[in-house]
Write a protein that binds this DNA or RNA. Sequence first.
DNA 1: ACCTGAACACCGTTCAAGT
DNA 2: ACCTGAACACCGTTCAAGT
Lengths: 177, 177
Amino acid sequence: MALTQLAVVSTAVDILQQFGLADLSMRRLAKELDVQVGALYWHVKNKQELLAQVAAKLLNTPQLSVNADDFSTPADTILQLSRRLYLALLPIQDSPEVIEVATAMQATELSPVLQLRELLEASGLSAENARHGQQLLLNHILGSVAFRQNLVQLDVDAPLADGFDWGLQRAVAGLVS
Amino acid sequence: MALTQLAVVSTAVDILQQFGLADLSMRRLAKELDVQVGALYWHVKNKQELLAQVAAKLLNTPQLSVNADDFSTPADTILQLSRRLYLALLPIQDSPEVIEVATAMQATELSPVLQLRELLEASGLSAENARHGQQLLLNHILGSVAFRQNLVQLDVDAPLADGFDWGLQRAVAGLVS
DNA sequence: ACCTGAACACCGTTCAAGT
DNA sequence: ACCTGAACACCGTTCAAGT
């Protein structure tokens, strides 16, 4: 396999899924690709940019989009998209950190996050308030995933009712009403 | 100054405030205290525990508590406490990460976070739902602080209306109503 | 009891030099 | 154009040995 940017990012995703962010080092990545560390820097600018591309690969998938026509109300569509995001990120170790790096750099577009804002605007919010609502929902999704993943790490047996969905419903109720 | 646990934690807080989490390494901390790295491990178990104590020192201050009697409604009291937390954490570089470590270990009690739950319960929520509401608000506070701090880092001039307060109001409205 | 010295096993990033 | 080899300046943690 030729060492391309795609190969670097894909292997990074693999390491993240299997071992978590702590094991996703440039050196470990190089080893996995049978290449010297410096070689990676020909294909990615630095680790931050790599993580942003990893985040994009995780989120920019058709699995993570909703069709507004499939739901009765805009609020329902927002709920469904939020739940899909939560459930998609939950099994990926340290995914919240990775997504935060990507949104912080705003170098890459994360389409489900964009869709969240569009749905809020479609439900009657101003462009500005839709942005703020997007922030509230994203904060809750990422924060809840991080909290849940920390519980697993501490061997606390995770209850099904982890409060994400209840909080989500109250937040959406507060946003569109 | 004798090397005590208090001295170690206090110096850690200083480094965090002045230079951020990236500079708060055990080695840097040892240098600041004119001591070898290994000496620190006599006073703190590891870096995680140190960060938890740093978080406690940051949050367990009388500045960050509210008197419910000072406000007309429970919702107002919750809003005020949330705003105080946000404003207190904002000037401290990378404070959300530090608080997250502390809450993840749940080794130390962070009193403003506890008070948030108490206020939610006082406003009529069940014990369980108060916990979930606490989670929603904490997610929004920490997420908004992290987002704002990332903007500063990228030299984007921060607008006064950063959306924290609007999102907070909608969340609280959704929670207690 | 408390600290030093030194090691172990790592990091991200850069860059001359090779092909 | 793409990669190697090697360096630079760091990490957290442990532990025999000193006082």
